[in-house]
Nucleic acid binder design. Structure first.
Lengths: 218, 218
DNA sequence: GGCGCAATTATTGGCGCCAATAGGCTAGGA
DNA sequence: TCCTAGCCTATTGGCGCCAATAATTGCGCC
């Protein structure tokens, strides 16, 4: 009874999605009352979610002032990409010995899906299919703790709004990257896999949107 | 005038320290009332700290049941060590070009301090001096985001209580490891640095305490 | 005597209220 | 006119109370 429809919603994830979608500008202060209304949640939940995001460095917490969207420091973004490259390259290489033909075909299908999204899909579908390609690959890695840390670091970096693919060309390059990785996987060449994954990830730094000078609040 | 002595204590860190010191057994349920009393904090703060630790996977949260100390899955510990090895080896190698004579002397001093702690210090001082050696080294790495992630992963792994050095011999081996790393650093040999750091970290898996069969609660 | 159900109790967790604090605004003086 | 000081308001955040929920124990029935 009292089939309490407690959806156990993960509020922090919802707010993170909102940040990622660009609903808030970098450095913008988040007022708890606004969030309460926007997400139809109690202040308590909002605060818990905000604290969680602060721990993940998606927002910055200033005591007695509030929370604000973290500013995507240029250097930091590059550094985080380097960490991602390190972790994901390792995950890919360790997955390599566990890939059979079916796995390769599955990966190819995922790459195709991304190609389609790149050609005509929304940015959300591009992001989703891209993540799916990588997650599928890493799913074959024996060290799942490594994969978890890699995903964590990736999602953390993804929080800065402006690291979304800024241009169609960059998306195309990303699609090509998947093909290069696939080829290296098929060849069973560990060094090539590591190099291609590294290039694929660091490549998104190349399409640096020149960081349209954000005015730092205050 | 309301010189509110609000110490802004980081309760989660205190609880983490308590867990690390072995105050609670793996799988043990943490009752909020006990923690309230033990740490002289309000329930609100306890819950916030517990939520933070749950996010860091130091404790497991079961809705409407409570929090319990995470069980250190054997395989997971080994996997996390591998991740640590990957990250810390990279940090050490990247620090290598930025080490001058003064830096090497400083590191030697830190290694000496650990030796002293290993010989006669408490387990806490051993842990502290060990961390200091590593942190000093990584402090010279240009990619501080990498260092932060590395420390995070390390601290997460450190939370499982039984990963403390179980034997005097293991501590001695750890001290030797520092010397090997130092020698590689002095030689400027990147490959040797990576290998020695990796061995130093993975070496703590070798002294596996054979995991005295913990009875899994319930 | 053992098993199952139900009442009781212990524990968690949701939430709203109020105090504390910072920032802005206005008024007064130089 | 500009600077400063004090008040005021908007916002955060600490905390305690009570409802919701699960474990436990006691009782009755088989």
């Amino acid at each position: 009874m009292t089939r309490s429809p407690r959806p156990r919603r993960h509020l922090a994830a919802e707010i993170a999605a909102a940040i990622r979608s660009g609903a808030y500008r970098s450095g913008e202060w988040l007022r708890q009352v606004d969030l309460e209304e926007r997400f139809a949640a109690t202040r308590f939940d909002i605060r818990a979610a905000l604290a969680e995001l602060a721990l993940r460095q998606a927002v910055e917490h200033v005591p007695n002032r509030g929370f604000r969207i973290a500013v995507p420091d240029r250097r930091r973004v590059r550094d985080m990409l380097a960490v991602r490259a390190l972790l994901e390259a390792e995950a890919a290489v360790s997955a390599l010995p566990h890939l059979d033909d079916a796995a390769l075909r599955l990966l190819e299908a995922k790459a195709d899906a991304f190609d389609r999204a790149a050609a005509e899909g929304s940015m959300a579908s591009q992001s989703a299919t891209n993540l799916e390609f990588h997650d599928t690959l890493y799913g074959f890695a024996p060290n799942q703790a490594l994969v978890e840390v890699a995903k964590e670091v990736r999602d953390r970096a993804r929080l800065w709004p402006l690291v979304l693919w800024p241009s169609l060309r960059a998306v195309r390059r990303s699609a090509e990257g998947h093909r290069v990785i696939l080829a290296a996987l098929r060849a069973g060449d560990a060094a090539a896999v590591a190099a291609s994954v590294r290039a694929h990830i660091l490549g998104s730094a190349a399409n640096d949107p020149a960081c349209s000078a954000e005015e730092a609040e205050r």
